[in-house]
Amino acid sequence: MTQVELIALAYQFGLAVAFLILSAAGLAVIFGMMGIVNMAHGELIMIGAYGTSIANRHGLPLVLAALCGVLASTATGVLLERTVIRRFYDRPSESLVMTWAIGLFISQAALIVFGPSLPSISSPLGSVAFGGFSLSIYGLLLIAFGLAVPVAIYLLLSTTTFGLHARATMQNVEVARAIGINSGSVYSATFALGAGLAGLAGALYAPTMSAVPNMGGSFIVQAFVTVVTGGGNLVYGTLPAAAGLGLVQTALTAVFGNLVGVLGLLAAVIVSAKLFPNGLAHRLSGKRFS
């Protein structure tokens, strides 16, 4: 393998891992904190992308438009948490069905309001050529975000008061309440954070995909498997899980093609469930967050 091919492959690996991390981040935060599997995660991603696309079409530059997308999904998250989700803490299976129904509602409402698709936005930054290959520079930005998001969440959880309260609530909600932490507002803030991260994924990928009501579907399977394989912790769970799954997928896709890549990812999930029945985070962090 030449150096050029190696770089191209490394870039593919980076893209695959970034996609898994960014798809999964919002889901991981909510799952890790509250044990809720948010089935409307894909629709929150779609709201992020729609917000970005619509704002961009109304003349906002891409960076500000992306911010609008993130705000839109965060606001939706807050609204959902206030009205519905907060009644379903400690009820993982009911919340799963509830969020599934909410997801269905959001995607079908988007179809009615915005029609079957929105015009896509163009990918900024152009491409860079080297040795017969050329890569999208925007892809490099996605990789950077893929690494920055877990780091930022880690810092948020380890250095701020919110982080302290959040970790306490995560470990033992009764004790946290007893020492005066308002677990309700911690949950609300976490859900909003998770929704915002979902919106961020949508905003970041909006220029690389077509904006359709069901676009969340392209993220959701990868997000689920990454989060559950990793366990509910971004740094100790999602990050290594994404790296592992991304490596398997990239290698298999490069050698055997896309079908084996997809099947291999699913097989890796099963193998990982067998090897780490309590999730990667549990293994890597020595039960720190779970």
Binding site: S120, S122, S123, G126, S127, V128, A129, S134, L135, S136, Y138, G139, P207, T208, M209, S210, S218
Partner: peptide, 10 residues
């Protein structure tokens, strides 16, 4: 999405 990604990659 292939078309957008292919175009972005030059």
């Amino acid at each position: 999405a292939y078309f957008q990604q292919a175009s972005a990659a030059g």
